[in-house]
Amino acid sequence: MMTEPRQTITNRVAFLEQRIPKYASVLGITGLLLLWEIICRLNIVPPLFLPAPSAILTDAWEMIATGELFKNLFASLYRVGIGYALGAVLGIVIGLILGFSRWTDAIVTPIVYSIYPIPKIALLPLIILWLGIGEMPKVTIIALGVFFPVVINTFSGVKNVDPILIKAAVTFGSSHANVIRKVILPGSLPMIFAGLKLAAGTSLLLLVSAEMIAAQQGIGAMVLHYGNLMITTKLMVGVLLLSLLGLLFNRGLQWLENKLLPWK
């Protein structure tokens, strides 16, 4: 008997399920650093324009030893910490109120949306005029920058809470206050976190800008200072520190989110 010709069917979307080993995420960054170091060692680019990673690390160590690095880091952390906390808390509270009360929504939302598109750094000269040249204007500008994304996200978070859940809560005897506390707040928390993460980037941007314009200490001031002196290794220490800070900031928020939203 003759065998029938066969045509086996194979999974043509196997590439969608491809597994990537864990070390892959470290691969890119190590490769980049290595390439960078080699370029510098071979003197392809003069060290003034692009200092080698090893040189940056050496200078960073020296700056840690003299205490210069931490002095600037703490000045920045203080500003961004207070500014971020202030903006986030105000943003969440006002966002919840806007979402819940139709009257305040109608009155306040147009104001929020007309101030939102202003790049906040443009307000710094005015705020310095109002609040003097101390820490206050820098903290205020960061708080402002954080406030807007948080308030807008909180607001839409509240609006996106499924009405059936509110009906269920009321059916099972919840008061208005408990509806807010037990349904609207947890229901809008995912959106609030999206806003907080967005605001993390904004806060660093404003921190550095404000410190470059008006500060003696802080990472922004440090970067500008070494830029003016053309000491690029120390400048790069500041830049890399910012990258690290942003990374840690995001990781911290992610950790908090996983902690607070285990149901997601």
Partner: peptide
Amino acid sequence: PNLAIVFQEIALFPWRN
């Protein structure tokens, strides 16, 4: 008197176990 509803949409609170 109190009443309770079983919803078509089920309407469990996703953040509560």
